[in-house]
C-alpha cells in the first residue's frame, strides 16, 4: 500500500505501453453509498489511481464544476470522517491506489495525527493538499511519511526554477503539474509554454509527472501526456458522473492512455 502501491500501479500501466490517467471524483457527490461502485468502475476503465476529493465549503483552487459537486456532497452530509469510514470498510476489496485531495482545514479540525493514521487504516495511498505550500508543510509531512502515505506536491507554472526543483525533490508518488494559471475546470487549449514547463518538470523530477487542471478531452490528455507521464482529469469526470454518462467516461480514459509519440 501507500507509495509502493502507487508505484506498482504506475509501472504496470507503463509496461503495458500506456500513459497514466488519474480521474478525480468528489466523495459524496451522488451519495457515499455509490463511492465504492464508482471507484471500481474507474479502475475497470483503466485508471492508474483515483483522486478522491473531500468536499470543503471554501475551495479556492476549484472552478465551478467541482465547487458545485462539493456543495452537493456537503448537502449529503459528507465529511472527511465519513469518507474515511467508507474507504476503510471497502479497503480489502480494493486494489487501485486512492489519493485523497483535501484542503487543509478539514484535516486540521479532524486532527492531523489522527488523519494520518486513519488514512493508513482506510487504505489511502497518497494525499494532495492544494493550500499547503512548501513553507507550511511541516505541519503534516512527517506524519504522512511515518504512515507510508505519499505526500504529492503540486508545481505551478508560476513557480520559480528553485521552487520547482525543491517540489520535485520532495514529492512522493508523483509530481502534480498544475498546467494552467488558474483554477480547476475545462479549458480550450494548452500552449507552448505548458509544453516547455512539462518537459522541464519531467527532466527534473525523479517521480512521474502528471499534468492536471483544465484537461477535459482525450486530445488534450494525449497531447499533454506526450510531454510527461500522464494526466489528471477532474471537472470533466465529475460532470460526466453527474449526468450519468458512464460510457463517455470509459471512452475518455481508454482513448487518453494511448501512447502518442510527440516531441
Amino acid at each position: 500500500m501507500g507509495k509502493d502501491l502507487i508505484q506498482q500501479s504506475f509501472l504496470k500501466k507503463q509496461e503495458a505501453g500506456e500513459k497514466l490517467f488519474i480521474p478525480y471524483i468528489m466523495a459524496g457527490d451522488g451519495g457515499l453509498d455509490i463511492l465504492e461502485e464508482r471507484i471500481d468502475y474507474l479502475h475497470q476503465c483503466g485508471a492508474a489511481a483515483i483522486e478522491l476529493g473531500i468536499p470543503f465549503s471554501d475551495p479556492v483552487a476549484d472552478g465551478p464544476t467541482i465547487q458545485d459537486a462539493g456543495l452537493r456532497a456537503l448537502n449529503n452530509g459528507t465529511s472527511l470522517g465519513s469518507v474515511l469510514n467508507v474507504l476503510k470498510e471497502s479497503s480489502e476489496r480494493r486494489s487501485v491506489p486512492i489519493i485523497l485531495m483535501t484542503y487543509l482545514n478539514p484535516i486540521f479540525v479532524y486532527g492531523i495525527e489522527k488523519f494520518a493514521s486513519d488514512c493508513k487504516q482506510a487504505g489511502v495511498d497518497g494525499v494532495i493538499i492544494p493550500d499547503l505550500p512548501l513553507e507550511e508543510e511541516a505541519i503534516i509531512d512527517k506524519l504522512l511519511y511515518k504512515n507510508s502515505i505519499a505526500f504529492i506536491r503540486l508545481a505551478a507554472m508560476t513557480s520559480t526554477k528553485e521552487r520547482v526543483l525543491e517540489l520535485a525533490k520532495r514529492s512522493e508518488g508523483f509530481l502534480y503539474a498544475v498546467s494552467v494559471t488558474g483554477t480547476t475546470g475545462a479549458r480550450a487549449t494548452h500552449e507552448q509554454e505548458v509544453k516547455d514547463y512539462l518537459r522541464m518538470l519531467k527532466q527534473e523530477s525523479a517521480v512521474p509527472v502528471l499534468a492536471g487542471f483544465g484537461v477535459s478531452t482525450e486530445v488534450q490528455a494525449r497531447e499533454l501526456s506526450s510531454y510527461c507521464d500522464g494526466v489528471i482529469v477532474g471537472s470533466k469526470i465529475v460532470d460526466l458522473f453527474h449526468k450519468g454518462q458512464l460510457e463517455e467516461i470509459k471512452g475518455l480514459i481508454q482513448n487518453s492512455v494511448k501512447y502518442e509519440v510527440n516531441s
Partner: peptide, 12 residues
C-alpha cells in the same frame, strides 16, 4: 497567520 495558499500564488 502564515501562508496557506496554492503554490500558484506563492511567487506573487
Amino acid at each position: 497567520g502564515g501562508k496557506f495558499v496554492p503554490e500558484l500564488l506563492m511567487p506573487a
